[in-house]
Structures are given as structure tokens and as C-alpha cells.
Design a protein around this nucleic acid. Sequence first.
DNA 1: GGATGTGAAGTAGTTCACAGCC
DNA 2: GGCTGTGAACTACTTCACATCC
Lengths: 232, 232
Amino acid sequence: MATPRLRTRKLSEPTIARLPVYQRIAESWGSRGLNRIDSQQIGELAGVTATTVRRDLAGLGSFGTRGAGYDVKVLNERIAEALGHDLQYDVVVVGIGNLGRALVNSTNFLIRGARLAALYDVASDVVGTVVAGHEVQSLTEPIVAATVGVICVPPSVAQQVADQLVGAGIHALLNFAPQVLTVPIGTAVHYVDFSIELQILMYHLNNGTGPLGGGLLHSLGIATPTPARGPS
Amino acid sequence: MATPRLRTRKLSEPTIARLPVYQRIAESWGSRGLNRIDSQQIGELAGVTATTVRRDLAGLGSFGTRGAGYDVKVLNERIAEALGHDLQYDVVVVGIGNLGRALVNSTNFLIRGARLAALYDVASDVVGTVVAGHEVQSLTEPIVAATVGVICVPPSVAQQVADQLVGAGIHALLNFAPQVLTVPIGTAVHYVDFSIELQILMYHLNNGTGPLGGGLLHSLGIATPTPARGPS
DNA sequence: GGATGTGAAGTAGTTCACAGCC
DNA sequence: GGCTGTGAACTACTTCACATCC
């Protein structure tokens, strides 16, 4: 396990969630050949106020230029550094169905810092095939050492897969299955739930208020560090 | 557009994001034949404090029983009602690749209240095939009337698809493409970004602190209601 | 001139602590 | 006894306003 160096002062949770968004904007501008951006522009694209952007970025150190905004390249680097993209994390993905394939083939999922270590499945017609440059392993094989385990299996077997990953020494799980997982203390589980954003959208449509002409930023994402074992 | 009736007093954004989680927990307990749950248990499974759970649920009206917790069935119903699951929304999905398939075949994505209206793609080998009970339409066909458009196409064409959906009168978009979209005022865009949760997880691993043995709830999900047109 | 960075003020959300009810 | 529901206290985040610097 890499030594976690204190690189920046602690960032707030909402800030951490916004940084990847700013980074995407910076990358987008960079790829269009633009090399300066100001907090106003970032804010409009990200859906937050310019002040919020400035405060978030000020937390990474003062690298803006008064009167001229931020250098896109430097912005990118600073965010990458703050998020720890300069350290490498091995990621294993379990469940190579449509979702697993979508993830590992996405240009977006395995961003800098995350390195695909292995893929696992149980289906005999999937095991042995090559997906995203990796031969899919059987789940009966031992799980390789990794930092993060990504669960893309049906909900009915998600708990079992989680147990297996934890047993292999993986203490950070990203769970795409619609299933509440119970894990030992010291293991982090983050849930990704497609339907939650849809439900939030529906709520706002329903109430007229919200994103339609109003507020814009949402809370999402739940982690269950040390849940009690479910109902016996 | 359905008449938006005011059904409950306004709920806070974080509360709205947590309700689907509570609902999933309630469903999970219900399916195991248990019919009572208390705020402590919900909190442990959801990764929030019992007080937060109680406050959230109190916002839906007082339906708990002092000394005995909440009836799982009633809990389910109240949340469904609050989120507007009793109204129907038509959803169209554009881009029937791995991700689009994963979504429409998921037991989770199209929850109560959301009804799949049509699927679209451009690839000739996909158009005409049947996925999740719907024949995939060509994007050259007119888009059917719907409330929500789901974008699962590559980032390079996401803006173009968004324009097409907006042109068809759809004012609520759920964007899975890693691409900042610009839409007219009055259109809501919610971004779903798989990598953000992974990046948040990496940040916390990196800093020792956070989900591993500490805090647990995260912010995520960004909406851009009325962004300025990007860099010319 | 123009945009950053930041104290100070304001607002929103969470947690405490306990009264109320089953 | 046990757990909900909620005023009150607290904490965290956002926004304002402006001094600061290029």
C-alpha cells in the first residue's frame, strides 16, 4: 500500500465531488486548443457559481492569475494531483456483462491513476474471452491483489462477490449492483445507482421546482463503511 | 406535461438523494418477510445517522410508530409517493451499446414511475433488433414524445443527440456520456459519471481519511440547467 | 481593467437532547 | 422500555463583497 502523503489540506466532500467535473471541463478546453479559463466560465459549464469554483480551486493552492483566470494545463495538473491521480491503483472488475463491458471500454471510467488489473466472471462463455485487452478470469481462480474492486454482477450474487473480494484483501469496493452490501469494518463501499439520478430528476419534474430553471447541484452517492449484518 | 401537484412540503436536496436508498433498504427487508424497521437499522445500512433518517422521513409526514419503528410497506409507499412514483414518465434511451443495454435490462434503472417509451441508435446492425421488448428505432426517425431522454452515446455525438432530443420537446436529460452539454434555458441536464465515485474513493484512499473508518456520505451528481455555449 | 483569493455574513444541513407516545 | 419526532445548538457549505495582484 502506497504511503499516503499529505499533499494538500483536507478538502471538503462537496469540493472533492466537483473537482472531477472541473477537470473534465479543463480537458475539454485543452483539447480545443484553448489554454485559459476563468471561474465564471467553469461555473457556467459545471452548473455552480463562480465563487464556489474559486473557493474550491483556492483549496488546491493559489495557481490562478488575477485578471486572467486559470491556465488550463496547470488546472488539470493540480486537480489530478489533489485527487491522487499520480499514484497508481489496481482495479479489478467482477461481472463482465453489458455493464462491466461498458465500464472497461469507456474512455472515462478508468481515469489516470486507475489501472485495470483483472476481469472476472462466472459464465463459461465469457471466461477466457478477451475484453479491453484482458482475458476474463474465472471467479473460481484466486483474486489478484488490487486496491479497488468493482462489482457489476446481478444483485443476487453481489454480497457473495463482495465477500470474495474482501477475502482477497480488497478494502475498497465500488458496487454497481442494486443491493445493500454488508462488509467488515475498515472496508469502504461506494454505491453507484443509476436510478437515483433519474428519481431525483422525476422528483423535480413532479414539483415544478428544481433543476428546471432553478437549483442545479445535487447530492448523491452513498457509502456504507461498516453496516450491521442485515436481518439475520 | 402532468400537472405538478404539491404533495409534500419541499424536501432538501440531500434528503431527496437519500430517499431512494431508504426505499431500496425497505424493499430488501420486505422481500425477506420482515415488516418493521427502525431508524437505527436504516441508518446503519444506508451509512447515515439514525437522526438523519428520522428527520428525512419526518418530512414525508409522521408515519412511524414510537417504540416500534416504521412499517416497511408504509415506508415504501410514502417514499414512492414523495418521489412521484405514482405519476408515469415516458423515457427514451438513445444509444443501445453496452451501457444502454445494461440500463434497460437492469431491474433497477426503470423504477416505478418510469416507463420505457422507445430506444434509438444509429448503427444499422442494432436498429431493428429487439432489446428489452422494444424494437430499436433509427435516429433518423422522429423522436417520440417523452418526458426524459437518456443519452448513452459516445461523447463525440452526445451534444448532437442532446440537440435532437431538445428539438423533440424533451426538457429533461440524463447524460451518461463524459461530455459537458449545452442546452437551452428550461432544460434540465443531469450528469451520471461513473468515474466520479471511483475518483472520490481514490482520494480517500490516498489521504488515509474518509470512508475507511470514518466519514461516509458523499456528494455527487451535477446538473447544468443553463450553461453558456462553450468556447465558441 | 479584470479576475483571483479570502474574511465575513448568510444559509442549509446535521446532530444533540429530550419530550411525547406506543 | 423503546423509538419517533422535533426545537435548539452546532457545523459545514455557500455567497457576498472587496482588497489584492497581474
